[in-house]
Design a binder for these strands. Sequence first.
DNA 1: AAGCGTTTAAGTCAACATGACCTTTAGGGG
DNA 2: CCCCTAAAGGTCATGTTGACTTAAACGCTT
Lengths: 239, 239
Amino acid sequence: MDEWLKHSTEVEASWVTADLTIFTVREGQLMVLLVERGVEPFLGRPALPGGYIQKDETLREGALRELWEEAGIDGRRLHLEQLGAYGEPRRDPRGRVVTIAYLALGPDLPAPVGGTDAERAYWAPVAQLQSDAQALAFDHAEILSDALEEVRTKLEYTAVATAFCGDSFTLSELRKVYEVIWGQVLDPSNFRRKVLNTPGFVQPTGEQRLPPTGRPAALYRRGTAWLLSPPLLRGGQQS
Amino acid sequence: MDEWLKHSTEVEASWVTADLTIFTVREGQLMVLLVERGVEPFLGRPALPGGYIQKDETLREGALRELWEEAGIDGRRLHLEQLGAYGEPRRDPRGRVVTIAYLALGPDLPAPVGGTDAERAYWAPVAQLQSDAQALAFDHAEILSDALEEVRTKLEYTAVATAFCGDSFTLSELRKVYEVIWGQVLDPSNFRRKVLNTPGFVQPTGEQRLPPTGRPAALYRRGTAWLLSPPLLRGGQQS
DNA sequence: AAGCGTTTAAGTCAACATGACCTTTAGGGG
DNA sequence: CCCCTAAAGGTCATGTTGACTTAAACGCTT
C-alpha cells in the first residue's frame, strides 16, 4: 500500500470501527443499549456496542454484525441509519481509530444477551446518563448526545417515531414515543388531528386494541411517507 | 497494532480520506467544485476534491487542508459540516478506503486555482451533472446526490441559506438562494414576511444596496438563530 | 343494569399562519 | 417628467394551531 503515499509520510493506516447507539422506549423511558467493556482500554466501563469493520463488509453490515455479536440483537428489523464519523486523533488510546456511529431504533426490544467478549449488555435510561456522562468510554458520551439530538429533530419531520412501535400501534402509543423523547406532554386530541392529517404518516388497520381500561383504540400501521409535510413541530405546546 | 486483533483475521487497516462537496451559487446556478484527477485511478475524470487524512489531524482539519491544497480555497470562512462516511469495500480499486464526506457552503467564491497534483479545479453546474452522473470518479455521484438532498432539506429548517450569502445581503439575494437550490420560484412578498417573522434568522444592518434597477434594498446579516421555528417549508407555493 | 372511572374519539373556537394578489415607494434611464 | 423595475408593505380568504369541551365505548363496581 505504500506506493500510494506520495506527498507525505504523515499518512498512516487507521482502524475503522462501527459503534451503535440503540434506542428503545421501555417503561415510559428512553433507553439506550450499553455494554460493560470486557477488554482494555476502559475495561469495565460502560460503552456503546461496536467493534472493528471487517475486510469485506460494508460499514452497515459491520454495524449489524457487531450488534448481533455484542448484544444478540438481530438488527435487520430495526431502523438503522448512519450518524457520522468520529475521528479525533486521540479518541482511542491505542492509536488512530475512526469510528462510524450508527443510530438504531426499535420497539420494546428483548433483554439483550451477553456478548462474546464477556461484555454484559443492558438497557440504561438515557435521562439518567445525561447527568454523569463521564461514565462512558471513549467519546461515546458525545456520540450518544448527538444521537439523541438527531432523534429529537427527526421526530419532527420524519415518520421515524413509528420505528419505536410494533407493526401495529395505537395513536396513544405513538404519542407516548414523542412525549418520552421530547420530554413534554402533548395534547392527545391535537396530536391525533395532526397525525391523521399528515398524508402517509399512518394508515388504519381496521383492528382495535383494548387498553387496560377505557374505550378501545384503533390500530394503525406506518404509512408510506417518510418525510412529514407538514412536520410535527414541538413548539410551545403547554399542557 | 496486531495484538488487538483477537477474534478474526478478517480485520485489516483502512485508509481514511476526506472528500468535500463544495456548493456555491454563481450566475443563478448551484455550482459544485470539481477537480480533474491528476493520478490513477480515474485519471483525468472529474471528482470531488479530497485526500488522505494525516496522522495527527482531526477529520475536519484534514478536510480543510485538502480544500486548500486541491483548490486553493481557505475554508475557515465557509460553512463546513460532516455528511457521513462512505465505505463500500470496493469503492476504491486500490483497497479499503473509507471516506468521510464533508459538505461546504460559501458565497460566490473565487475561481479556484489548480492543485498540487496537477489537478485542474473548476466550478460545475450541479443541474447539468445530474444527467450524466457516471462521469464522476469513485462513488462521488452518490455523495454529491446525498449532499444536494441534505442542503435542500436543511434550507427548510435551518438558517444555512445565509452561508451562501456574503456578510451582508438583501432579502432578494437570500430568496434567490432558495429558488436556485429548490428549483422553484418563491413569492417575494411572502418570503420576506416569513423570513422577517422567524426570530433570529436575519437582522437588519441599517445599510442599503442599489440594485441594477429598482428601489434600494435593505441589507441584512445573519441572525443568532440556527434552527428556524417556524421552518420555511417548500410546500405548494405555485407562482 | 345503572353508575363510575378511564381512555379514545370527535367537535368547537379564537388566534395565528399561509398563499395569492394588489398597492405604494424609491431608485435609474430615456 | 414619465416609464420601467424591484423593494416594501398591505389585503383577504383559507388553513392550521393550541386550548378546551363533549361524546362514545369499554371494564368494574354496586
